[in-house]
Amino acid sequence: MSIQADPADPRSGQVPPATALQADAAGFGGTPSANGASSLSVVDLTLSFGPRAILSNLQLKVAEGRVTALLGPTGSGKTTLLRTFNRMNDKVTGYRHQGDVLLDGRSIWHSGIELMSLRRKVGMLFQRPNPFPMSIMDNVVAGVKAAKMAPRNQLRDIAERRLRDVGLFDAVSGRLKDSPFRLSGGQQQLLCLARALAVDPDVLLLDEPTSSLDPMATEAIEELVRTLVPKITVVIVTHNLAQARRVSDSTVFLNKGRLVEHGDTKQLFENPAEEETARYVSGRFG
């Protein structure tokens, strides 16, 4: 198996499983970086559905406070990997994992980790906008309310601030009590982003967030993603090579359940180390 090390971090790709155990013993809390973003390390991870392995023996260190793109053809396991980071696959029938994922040095499957708080820490934006059937304002603060992160009388301010953060406030200020389903697709996705940011995540997972959007909305989302770093560690799955190039600092290329190459985005696109990567990024397969 060929595993490329992250040029920015010579240790990546070679973290032995023992480190995971030590990190576990160290207790909850880990060591997030000074600016609040969290680090994600994948340690010898094998993911499978039933008898079929989706990803095998994956080693990966996601740089904290940066945007990492997961690239690969359909079926390469990138979405499965992404959904593992916030344990969205746990309930899927047949899903099994071996190895470990460390969030700030601590296993996400550690028994002391509360699943709900892990998911607040590791937020997610989906392929298509998925507003809840409640008012626009209630949508933004849904997670805040569910986790009782703020008193009731502050919810409106929080909603307004988060809507401003994603540049949606002016468009919806007069109809905060209205249905989100009358917004355009792009506006809905911005609303979902505001909702994900409202619970102050340290990591944000983006699962092809612009695949259902028009170019203007795509540009708005991409610009926003760039403003999230370095406060938040961003992992984005995309089929769009140009998008990966535009938004990410480093890129991981997955193919057939293996990590083929991981490196600085510019270098990976312009001067890939692997022939497989070169063929994919130049559009010759996938």
């Binding site: 916030n86 969205m88 709900m116 708080s117 892990l118 998911r119 607040r120 937020g123 997610m124 989906f126 392929q127 298509r128 998925n130 507003p131 809840f132 059937p133 409640m134 849904a142 997670g143 569910a146 986790a147 979902c192 909702r195 994900a196 619970v199």
Partner: peptide, 21 residues
């Protein structure tokens, strides 16, 4: 499934997901 997953991914419990979404 998507709005339900959205609620789960936001750290909402099954009961909250059912009640709110």
């Amino acid at each position: 499934i998507l709005p339900r997953e959205g609620a789960v991914a936001l750290g909402m419990s099954d009961a909250e997901t059912a009640r709110k979404v």
